Amino acid sequence: MYKLAGLILAAGAGRRMGGGLGGKLLLPYRGEPLVVHVARKALAVCDPVVAVTGCNAEAVAQVLREQAPGLRFAHAPDWRAGQARSLRAGLESLEGDMAADIAGVLVFLSDQPLVRMETLETLAASFRDHPEDFVAPRYRGKRGNPVCIPRAWFARVMALDGDVGARPLLDHPDARLRLVDVDDCGVLRDVDTVEDYHALMNCRESVVIQEAQPALRD
């Protein structure tokens, strides 16, 4: 059985929320911080799971240790340089596991608490059936997150730089991208702004999302 590791990107400052203090991941949603919802779901479908911290690292790590035990942690000291540095830090932390049967990683955005467990299970199953492919969810024709990255592409992910994450690789001519249709608008919904947070607190999971969010972005 191929193993699918998980990376939770929890390093950003959340500047679009205002203040630039990196506190958005600790905002409450249904009685728990946003990032805890993501972490618990990641632990349910992936092994191991690494949370990559950066801004506000101590506070984020403390909450996750207390409320989502079982996580590993990696710190991206250069997190200000963009999401690619977080991906690199996460993959480097898994290097000791590479002799085992890890076939890829499922990359979670830490501000997407609405993604359903059945969606994650579907993505994981699709990846295990096709471990050489990138796998991403698609809702009503729009690509979302999280995204599975095959192990064969790890070196190219680690060579990336800037704030684009692994998105350029999905469009590489050699990449095989498998899109999985899901009935889950949560794959498009992240919390970037105060307005996003208010909408999250006042809506149901079934709300239709009008605008797609680029895959693998902070």
Rank of each mutant, 00 (worst) to 15 (best):
L188I: 10
R138A: 11
L216H: 06
P146S: 07
L177D: 02
D196G: 05
L91R: 03
M98K: 02
F127Q: 02
S206Q: 08
D133G: 01
I149S: 01
A74W: 07
V60F: 05
L160Q: 02
F154S: 06
R204S: 11
V115A: 11
A10Y: 05
V52E: 01
A5S: 09
E95T: 10
F134I: 09
E66T: 15
R128K: 15
D129W: 03
L120T: 03
E95Y: 00
M98W: 13
C203F: 03
V52P: 03
R189W: 14
C148R: 04
M117S: 13
E211F: 07
R156C: 02
G82H: 00
R72S: 05
D133Y: 08
Q83A: 11
A84I: 07
D97Y: 13
W79I: 12
Y139G: 02
C46G: 14
N202A: 10
A44F: 06
V36W: 04
P48S: 14
D196I: 10
K41T: 10
R65D: 09
N56M: 14
D171W: 00
V107F: 03
L87I: 13
V35E: 06
W153S: 03
R40S: 07
D196V: 09
T122E: 09
R88W: 10
V187A: 07
A39V: 00
R88Y: 00
K41D: 04
A44D: 06
D129M: 10
R116P: 14
F154Q: 08
I8C: 12
G20N: 14
G12C: 05
V52Y: 07
L91E: 01
V36M: 13
T119I: 05
G90I: 01
C55R: 03
V147R: 09
L43D: 08
A199R: 12
V52N: 06
